[in-house]
Amino acid sequence: MQNTISVKDLSVHYYGKQALQHISFDIGAGRIIGIVGPNGAGKSTLMKSMLGLEKYSGSVQFSGEPVDKHRSNIAYVPQRSDIDWDFPVLVKDVVTMGRFVHVPWYRRLAQSDKKKALEALKQVGMEQFAGRQIGELSGGQQQRVFIARALAQDTDYFFLDEPFVGIDMNSEKIIVSLLKKLKNEGKTIFVVHHDLSKVETYFDELILLNGHLIASGPVQEAFRADTIKAAYGDNAAVLQSDKEMVVVGP
């Protein structure tokens, strides 16, 4: 059960309304998993529930244990809209924050921690911006900094909520390349995503939602015309050819 995640009968209610109902799936290590569905489908809610940031009923286990036993082994990158970009903090300090999960409160960061943070910045091509204020960067640069913070945590699980929204193509390519490298190292990576045209390129497995689970499993099994229609209804036009499926969503 090393680095596996098991979700059983997960449900979430907001003010008497059911946001997610009876979600169940199992994920192994070394996979990039896309969480996909229309607006309001519960994608971010599912991710936050798995991390224990939302109240839910059901069961979520990491390697057979509750999430609280794996806090230091999980990196989470929230939506950009959830971050205060006006807060005065330097890029290098944002990335260094990723090391605090491994450092007792009474100890200062060691030089090895600062070195890991710098290495993470280099991986995303942002080392030359280490002394800049985070608010001075472009959207793509800011996202790369937060990816670097996740890399600095040196974890086995990565959760990214809409990491490609509002960023440039170069930043997206850098992030995707890093995620695939992490996958090859045996990491488990969840990505909330909305661009269906890139599902087959970016992900190994898919969780397709619309309040409930439409489909889950390997992309070639879960990403089909019938499952897309079940999730998006008449808002998705599905064009199939012998070589690829192109989905144009809302």
Rank of each mutant, 00 (worst) to 15 (best):
D168L: 07
F203L: 02
G131I: 00
K122A: 15
L206M: 15
E136F: 09
K173L: 06
T155Q: 05
Q142G: 11
I134T: 11
H193E: 12
E136K: 06
A130G: 05
G135R: 06
G140E: 08
D195P: 13
R144S: 13
G131M: 12
T188K: 12
F158A: 05
S177G: 09
F129W: 13
D195C: 03
T188E: 14
Q128V: 10
L178T: 11
S197V: 00
T155P: 12
R149L: 10
L137R: 09
L151F: 06
I175Y: 00
A150S: 15
G125Q: 08
G135V: 03
V124S: 09
I167D: 01
F159M: 06
D204M: 06
S171L: 05
M169F: 12
A148H: 12
T201S: 13
L137V: 03
Q153H: 01
Q141I: 11
E205A: 10
K173N: 07
P163Y: 03
V192N: 06
D156M: 04
L196N: 06
M169K: 08
I147T: 02
L182D: 07
L179A: 13
K180H: 14
Q153A: 11
F203S: 14
G125V: 08
V191M: 14
K187A: 14
Q143Y: 03
G139H: 06
A148M: 10
K187E: 07
F203D: 13
L178I: 10
K198Q: 15
D156R: 05
H194P: 15
V124C: 09
Q128H: 13
K187Y: 07
G125H: 01
N170W: 08
F190N: 12
P163M: 03
I167F: 01
R132I: 11
E136T: 07
F203H: 08
F159N: 08
N184G: 14
S197I: 01
F203P: 11
F203W: 02
V176H: 04
F159A: 07
F158N: 01
T188D: 15
L206T: 15
V191T: 14
G131F: 00
F158L: 13
E136S: 15
Q153P: 02
Q141R: 08
K173Q: 11
G166F: 04
A152C: 11
Q133A: 04
N184L: 08
F190E: 04
K187F: 06
L137H: 02
L182Y: 09
E205H: 11
E127K: 04
T155W: 02
G140M: 06
V124P: 05
V145R: 08
K181N: 15
G186A: 03
E172T: 04
Q128T: 10
K122G: 12
A152W: 00
P163D: 08
Y157H: 04
L160A: 07
A148P: 13
Q143T: 07
D161E: 02
A130L: 05
G135Y: 00
Q133K: 04
H194D: 07
V191H: 02
F146I: 07
G139F: 00
N170K: 15
S197Y: 02
D168W: 00
Q128A: 13
E200G: 08
